[in-house]
Simulated scan of single mutants.
Amino acid sequence: MKHIIIAFIFTGILMSCNSSDKKNTTTENSSEMETTEKRTSNDSIRELKSIVTDADLIATALLSAPEESRSESKVIGYNMKGEFVTLKEGNNEFIILADDPNKSGFSAACYHKDLEPFMARGRALKAEGKTPQDIFEIREEEMKSGALKITTGATLHIYYGSKTAFDPETFKVDGAKLRYVVYMPFATSESTGLPEAPAASNHPWIMNPGTHRAHIMISPLPEEK
Rank of each mutant, 00 (worst) to 15 (best):
N79A: 03
I58L: 08
E116L: 15
N91P: 05
T60R: 04
L87H: 08
S64D: 07
I58R: 03
V75I: 02
S71E: 15
E93L: 11
N102P: 00
N92D: 03
E67R: 10
L62K: 10
L57E: 04
E67H: 11
A61E: 07
F118I: 00
K113P: 04
L115A: 13
S69W: 09
I96M: 09
A98P: 04
V75K: 00
S107G: 09
S104G: 15
E68F: 08
K103N: 14
G105M: 07
S71W: 01
S107E: 15
Y78Q: 04
G82H: 08
V75S: 00
K103T: 10
K81T: 13
Y111T: 05
V75D: 00
F94P: 00
K74D: 05
G90P: 10
N102R: 14
S104F: 09
N79W: 02
I96R: 08
M119E: 15
E68M: 07
T60C: 09
E72N: 14
L63H: 05
E89A: 11
G105P: 03
R70M: 12
T60L: 10
V85P: 10
L87T: 08
P66R: 11
G105R: 09
S71V: 09
N91A: 12
C110R: 02
K113A: 09
K74W: 04
K113Y: 11
R70L: 06
E83G: 12
S73A: 15
E68P: 00
F118H: 06
S73K: 03
S69M: 13
A61Y: 07
M119R: 14
A108C: 08
G82L: 08
L97F: 05
D99N: 15
S73D: 07
A98K: 04
E116T: 13
G77M: 07
F94R: 09
E93D: 15
L97M: 13
K81S: 14
L63C: 01
H112F: 06
A61F: 01
R70F: 02
F84P: 14
F118R: 05
L115R: 09
L115C: 09
S71Q: 13
R70S: 08
S107Y: 00
G90L: 11
G90I: 06
S69H: 07
K88L: 10
K103R: 14
P117C: 07
C110S: 15
F84N: 15
T86Y: 11
E89F: 01
